[in-house]
């Protein structure tokens, strides 16, 4: 564990709490992509299969994995049931099969061992890299977003961004590299570039998040 990893994971935790806070205080999931959230459930379920196979890493690791699975399922419940009237499926129209199918194919090709858990792990890494697309698509379509929704997306981007110095640190301190995670992680972070540009130049200056026409 190094400081980049720790703060990355904390940013990930923060993103979930920001999202829950947004939905529960506004009693609305307006602007939130159900599809992105459903993809995160798929990501966590396929990546954390080892939880159910008795692999033990650490208490921290197990606790975080359970939290990510539990909270992502809870968010789906909130959107689908508790606040379903505030969810607009006509805005959330990104075709998830464009993300699921290529991620699965990449998982079959690029993996560290051709076993169910390793292929699923690779699939989850590729899927996570692109899972934000439906959410960014809503942002693109509406052209604006509530500040709190943008804080959620920013926290997710920071989480992924911090994993990059973590890998550099681990390369020098442990000599280990995980090429699949690194390549997918760099792509994933890159997807946030446009978003961060608007976030830093507008939202953090106190202006509304509005995409240029």
């Amino acid at each position: 564990m190094n400081i980049f990893r720790l703060f990355g994971d904390l940013a990930h935790l923060a993103s979930i709490f920001i999202l829950l806070h947004k939905v529960q205080t506004s009693r609305s999931c307006r602007g939130i992509s159900f599809k992105t959230q459903a993809l995160y459930v798929a990501v966590f379920m396929t990546r954390y299969l080892d939880l159910f196979l008795g692999t033990w890493v650490s208490f921290y690791n197990t606790l975080m994995k359970l939290f990510f699975i539990g909270s992502s399922c809870y968010i789906l419940y909130l959107i689908r049931f508790q606040f379903r009237t505030t969810y607009d499926p006509n805005l959330d129209t990104f075709r998830v099969e464009y993300l699921l199918v290529p991620s699965f194919i990449l998982g079959l090709i690029f993996n560290y061992e051709f076993t169910l858990t390793e292929v699923m792990w690779s699939f989850s890494i590729f899927l996570e890299a692109v899972a934000i697309f439906p959410q960014l698509f809503i942002l693109q379509r509406t052209g604006e977003a509530e500040a709190i929704t943008t804080h959620y997306i920013a926290a997710l981007g920071i989480y992924r961004g911090l994993y990059i110095p973590n890998w550099i640190y681990r390369y020098y301190s442990e000599g280990s590299v995980d090429p699949i995670a690194v390549v997918a992680g760099i792509v994933q972070t890159g997807l946030y570039a446009d978003f961060f540009y608007v976030y830093f130049t507008k939202v953090l200056q106190g202006q509304r998040f509005e995409l240029p026409a």
Partner: peptide
Amino acid sequence: IREEKAKDEL
């Protein structure tokens, strides 16, 4: 096989 060390990442 994925390195044991990397398996602690989330």
